[in-house]
Structure formats: structure tokens, C-alpha cells
Amino acid sequence: MQIIVRLDVMLAKRKMKSKDLAEVIGISTQNLSLLKTGQVRGIRFETLAKICAALDCQPGDLLEAMPDD
């Protein structure tokens, strides 16, 4: 099973730039970019909670499980 990160979709819905979100949640834009593209192995619950608070969403709005082909 693969986890797909839909952070870019939520940023677009909220009309927020990655740079602004990174500043609000206190991580670098480079780390946020890696998260956005799914190039990370994990995410701290604390970081996920900050993202959800900043974007007024739930973790399920940002992450999607996809079965392997």
C-alpha cells in the first residue's frame, strides 16, 4: 500500500502558498516541499497537527492510501 500526500490540493483550496504554510508551522520550505511531493518516509504527528490547524482540515484530507498495482 502506498500513501499519497495531497498537501498541494489543500494548499490550492485554501489559496495558501507553501512558503506561507512553512512559516506558520515552523518548518523550512525545503522540508515542506519534500513532504508535498511525497519524498519523505514519515511525518511527526505534531507537524501533521500544525498543518491541519493552519489549513483547517483533517489528516484524511492530506493523506490517501492507495493499493499497490
Rank of each mutant, 00 (worst) to 15 (best):
M1C: 07
M1R: 03
Q2N: 14
Q2I: 06
Q2G: 03
I3P: 05
I3T: 15
I3C: 07
V5N: 10
V5H: 00
V5T: 05
R6T: 01
R6S: 04
L7C: 09
L7R: 00
L7I: 09
L7S: 00
D8S: 12
D8V: 05
V9C: 13
V9H: 15
M10S: 13
A12L: 08
A12N: 01
A12C: 02
K13F: 06
R14C: 10
R14V: 12
R14L: 01
R14K: 09
R14Q: 15
R14T: 00
K15G: 15
K15T: 05
S18Y: 02
S18L: 08
K19S: 11
K19Y: 02
K19P: 04
K19F: 12
D20W: 04
D20I: 10
L21S: 01
L21P: 07
E23P: 00
V24N: 01
V24E: 02
V24Q: 11
I27A: 01
I27P: 02
I27C: 13
S28A: 10
T29D: 08
Q30E: 11
Q30T: 11
N31S: 05
N31Y: 10
L32P: 03
L32F: 09
L32N: 07
L32A: 03
S33K: 03
S33T: 00
S33I: 09
L34Y: 03
L34M: 07
L34W: 11
L35S: 03
L35V: 04
L35G: 09
K36I: 14
K36H: 11
T37R: 11
T37W: 08
T37V: 13
G38Y: 13
G38K: 12
G38P: 12
G38A: 07
Q39V: 01
Q39K: 13
V40M: 01
V40R: 01
V40E: 03
V40P: 04
V40N: 00
R41P: 04
R41K: 09
R41D: 01
R41I: 01
G42P: 06
G42F: 15
G42E: 13
R44Y: 05
R44T: 14
R44F: 06
R44E: 09
F45L: 15
F45M: 14
T47A: 00
L48W: 15
A49G: 05
A49C: 09
A49S: 13
K50W: 08
K50I: 08
K50V: 05
I51R: 14
I51V: 10
C52E: 10
C52G: 10
C52M: 09
A54I: 03
L55E: 04
L55I: 05
L55K: 09
L55G: 10
C57D: 11
C57A: 14
Q58T: 15
Q58E: 15
G60T: 12
G60K: 14
G60Q: 10
G60D: 10
G60C: 08
D61M: 06
D61Y: 15
D61F: 03
D61C: 10
L62Q: 14
L62Y: 03
L62H: 13
E64G: 06
E64F: 07
A65N: 02
A65W: 00
A65V: 12
M66S: 14
P67T: 11
P67N: 05
D68C: 11
D68G: 06
D69L: 14
D69Y: 09
